[in-house]
Design a protein around this nucleic acid. Structure first.
Length: 468
DNA sequence: TCGCCTATCACCTTTGAATCGG
DNA sequence: ACCGATTCAAAGGTGATAGGCG
């Protein structure tokens, strides 16, 4: 297996023109991720995206699809996706808008979806968009298919992680970056609540084509079978039509619960600014601790709050993600907070780089001594602080070690493939490599803070069982 | 009674094997 | 024998719906 260090040496040539910075920047600081179909996502987000979750698992729509650039063509990377709670609340749909319905339920087992192509060379990831089409969401906490487990009526947003590693067991996290896209946040539901979302789904999801009104749809035929259905359908149709007519005047929901999304227009409701300060300290991971103090419009606040703590990627024509962590440019928690909401902040990525406010528990004041260790910090030499907790937990759990709840990583790969599926109940199914476990354990214990943002990892689902 | 969840349905797209022709 | 295009059936995804459950 070729180490990253080796790769670096092999990569002696000048970085691509796109890499304005030096070699280090090329290796660790220029990874860019953009969301495909941003407009579609935006459309959904403006209304309040809902994602159906079912026991057998349901795909997302729109599904996550991103474009990557700035990777080392010959280095291998692993792409992961996990879902992060937006806040510590449970919601209910009431009178055309989302309302807080109480405290969130205990976070289900955090799972991470591993892109089936992982690991693959950077060139592979960059040559075409990366789709997470087959990622499925479920509300079955006992799910054994590796689907991402969510709670209904709770809000989440996907996080994309890209890790430079030859395989899951040799992950060194020397280059580990996380991206989130504000417009991808959604409310998990078992049945659509907002009819506008239903309409959007039907209009845009090819699988739902059968429910479109256009042309000679079979819906009427189906409805005719049952008068009651016809009535309901008619009502629905009316609602949808009305909704369409109201497109210009979003429901309260959009404003009160999703105002966190500022979109690109920058015409955010002023209210956001008023809340920004309070929300600065709030993050999905700090919800439990702080939610008691939050009494108003948690929904919108949460969203914005979440984003306000993320780093921004230089804006471009395409929808830009918020760079969550960029080990190497470790943000400092307070620097960018409150400066603006997510939307306005998006335009000033550089200035917001230092921003780790999303790590409430973490001592953000700790010096980020080892920023993303460029390749010169070769993987094998990188101490594995808490960043490795996730893998550590996962592997330890797999090994049946007590006291550690595994973090499940799902891969469509079969068991025979390098990256297996770690689903809950099957500890022995994909036994981890012992050396990895030991290695990480050691690193976590003894080098707890080598990485720039190591500490933060312990706050994230990807590396810890509890997201809260 | 209400809100949420789930099984089932009909409709549709996607996928891959089978077939055909060059 | 090989390859690409086409066909077709199975698999699977979709929202709608009714009924169950707490």
């Amino acid at each position: 297996m070729q180490s990253i260090r080796d790769l670096k040496s092999n990569f002696s040539g000048p970085p691509p023109s796109s890499m304005a910075a030096g070699p280090d920047a090329y290796l660790q600081g220029n990874i860019r991720m953009t969301l495909e179909d941003p407009e579609l996502w935006k459309t959904f987000h403006e209304i309040g995206t809902e994602m159906i979750i079912t026991k057998p698992g349901r795909r997302m729509f729109p599904h996550c699809k991103v474009n990557l650039s700035g990777l080392i063509p010959c280095a291998k990377y692993i792409l992961l996706v996990d879902m992060v709670p937006e806040d510590g609340f449970r919601y209910k749909w009431n009178k055309e808008k989302w309302e807080v319905a109480g405290k969130a339920e205990p976070q289900p087992p955090c799972r991470t979806y591993l892109h089936p192509d992982s690991p693959a060379p950077g060139s592979h990831w960059m040559k075409q968009s990366v789709s997470f089409l087959k990622l499925k969401l479920t509300n079955n906490t006992l799910d054994q298919h590796g689907h991402i487990i969510l709670h209904s009526m709770h809000r989440y947003h996907p996080r994309f992680h890209i890790v430079q590693a030859d395989d899951l067991f040799s992950v060194r996290w020397s280059v580990f970056q996380t991206f989130t896209f504000p417009e991808t946040s959604f409310t998990a539901v078992t049945a659509y609540q907002n009819t506008k979302i239903t309409k959007l789904k039907i209009d845009h999801n090819p699988f739902a084509k059968g429910f479109r009104d256009e042309g000679t749809n079979k819906k009427s035929r189906r409805s005719n079978k049952n008068p009651a259905c016809l009535d309901k359908r008619t009502k629905m149709s009316d609602i949808l039509k009305r909704d369409s007519a109201e497109e210009d005047s979003p429901p309260d929901f959009c404003q009160s619960s999703f105002d966190g999304y500022d979109g690109e227009e920058g015409d955010l409701p002023k209210r956001k600014d008023d809340e920004s300060v309070k929300e600065e300290r709030y993050s999905p991971w700090g919800a439990e601790r702080e939610q008691n103090a939050r009494t108003d419009s948690p929904a919108g606040a949460d969203t914005r709050d979440m984003y306000s703590t993320e780093q921004l990627v230089p804006a471009s024509a395409s929808y830009q993600p918020y760079r969550f962590h960029e080990y190497g440019k470790s943000p400092s928690p307070s620097s960018s907070i409150g400066s603006s909401n997510s939307g306005s902040g998006r335009s000033s990525f550089e200035s917001r780089v230092p921003d780790i406010a999303t790590v409430p528990d973490h001592d953000s004041s700790k010096p980020r001594t080892q920023e993303i260790g460029p390749s010169h910090c070769g993987p094998q030499h990188l101490p594995g602080p808490q960043d490795y907790t996730g893998v550590l937990n996962m592997t330890m759990a797999q090994a049946g070690k007590p006291g550690v709840i595994g973090h499940h990583i799902y891969s469509p790969y079969g068991a025979e493939q390098p990256l297996g599926q770690w689903s809950g109940p099957g500890p022995a199914q994909y036994p981890p490599t012992h050396h990895l476990t030991a290695d990480y354990t050691t690193q976590a214990v003894h080098h707890g803070y080598h990485h720039g943002n190591v500490a933060e990892w312990s706050q994230y689902p990807l590396f810890s069982y509890s997201c809260w």
